[in-house]
């Protein structure tokens, strides 16, 4: 019984994050998007949504 509560809690939080992430992905950016250089070239955090390697993945989700 004491295992069920944390797993349900984890599932709720994970579901909250996944759904907010998905909704955010589907919301289009206002005009002025693709303006996202921000000197991000030197940063190697490839999990960031602004990294150039993620552009095609975001593109294919939108279409």
């Amino acid at each position: 019984m004491q295992f069920v509560a944390p797993i349900i809690f984890l599932g709720l939080l994970g579901g909250l994050y996944a759904s907010s992430y998905y909704l955010n992905l589907k919301t289009p950016k206002p005009e002025g998007c693709e303006d996202l250089d921000v000197s991000c070239g030197s940063c190697s955090i490839s999990s960031c949504g602004l990294h150039p390697s993620n552009k095609e993945i975001i593109g294919e989700v939108k279409s």
């Binding site: 984890l10 994970g14 994050y17 996944a18 992430y21 998905y22 992905l25 999990s47 993945i57 989700v61």
Partner: peptide, 15 residues
């Protein structure tokens, strides 16, 4: 699913 891979990764790593 490809859309929500980052949330899944974060849950796995945090656990």
């Amino acid at each position: 699913p490809n859309d929500i891979r980052i949330p899944v990764y974060i849950v796995v790593i945090a656990t």
